[in-house]
Amino acid sequence: MSPYRLDQERQADYFAAVEDITRTGAYRTTSGWSTRAMELVAAELRLSESWEVVPTRSGTDALVMALTMAGVRPGAYVAAPDLAYHAVGAAIFQIGALPRWIDVDPCTLNIDLADLATAFDHLPLAAVIGVDNYGTRCDRTSIAQLCSAAGVPFVLDACESLGTPEGGANRAALADFVAISFSFTKPIHAAGTGGALCAPRAVVRDRGGDPGLLMHPRRLPELNAAYLVLSWPDLRGVIGKLRSIYTAYHERLRGWGLTGQRGEAGSSRIHAPFLLPEGSNRKERDALIDHLARSGFEARPYFESQSRLWGMPAPPCSANLAQRVICLPTGAGFPHGSLDEVAAEVISWMEARRG
């Protein structure tokens, strides 16, 4: 992954902001750069005036705060997709709750709605976390309907989907809480860290005083907020580049047995996930990663089954997909000229495998 970086002119602006912040000592504040950053988030998500955006140190902090404000308590069950970044499970365990791992759809790699419905029938769920895995939107409408029917809060992990195009209207407000991330792997970032919690203002005001939340220490530092604000104008361009990289991989690898994630029209494509052919395993996937590394290209085995990481039984589809998924080189700084080389190396490895 090539992380987003400011151009030379905005680097100068950022260093000026750093000097001002260190001179005044305003490292964390409810005004200044953080306020500007959260205004940008609210506009991007098209949130209503009744919603508030709380700047946080990370997307994980935002998830922890969302679950706490949702009323989830130690020992309660929280449903979450098994194939997702492990920060989801970490947030659940941080508040002492218990995960009910939900299987994923083999085409979208997002939460399986049938398995989620089954979980509602068998467990007293306290909340559901829906994840926009690899930047592709989960079925927010269906998840919201299931949660509404059961009277259970819906927490949307949109940490990977900021900037995702969807016909002009962002539908984040279908959820009760929305978590956003600005870590290094995102299209733009807040100097490597940062996040945001989006929720109805009345809920934040009513429940934000929970002593377990430690709201002020969890706030986004001004040094990071300044970087994020200066990065923001490039969001659309970076998303366009990431999407074009993924499309190019599809075109070059067509016919070689690698399957891409469906839902391309609604994805930010911050990763470039492909599934190796059915029957492949971790050993083969890791061999391809090593093959690309020897050629100077960094691919990654995103994501491991969360249940496997936590030593728990894994849903069958997720367990299978976690062995086969590989994210090919991409990122804001990835040169388009390297696409053909990466594809050629993948094809070379596939040819040897078939032989």
Score class of each variant (00 low, 15 high):
R57Q: 12
E9Y: 02
G59K: 00
D20C: 00
G25K: 11
Y77G: 01
E44W: 07
A62I: 03
R36G: 03
E39H: 13
D13I: 01
A37C: 09
V72Y: 05
M65I: 10
A79Q: 05
T24L: 11
E9R: 13
L40N: 05
F15Q: 13
T35H: 13
R36H: 11
V53C: 14
V18F: 04
R36C: 02
G59S: 03
E9I: 05
L47K: 00
T22L: 12
A76K: 06
A66M: 10
L47A: 01
M65G: 05
A16W: 03
E52P: 00
D20P: 01
P55D: 04
Y27D: 01
T24W: 00
R73M: 14
L47S: 06
G75Q: 07
T22A: 03
Q11M: 12
T29P: 00
L67N: 09
Q11I: 13
A79I: 08
G71F: 08
G32E: 03
R10Y: 03
T68A: 14
W33A: 06
S31V: 10
M69L: 13
L63C: 06
R10I: 03
T68D: 04
T60D: 00
L45K: 08
G75S: 06
F15R: 15
Y14L: 06
L67G: 07
W51K: 12
L40W: 00
R10V: 01
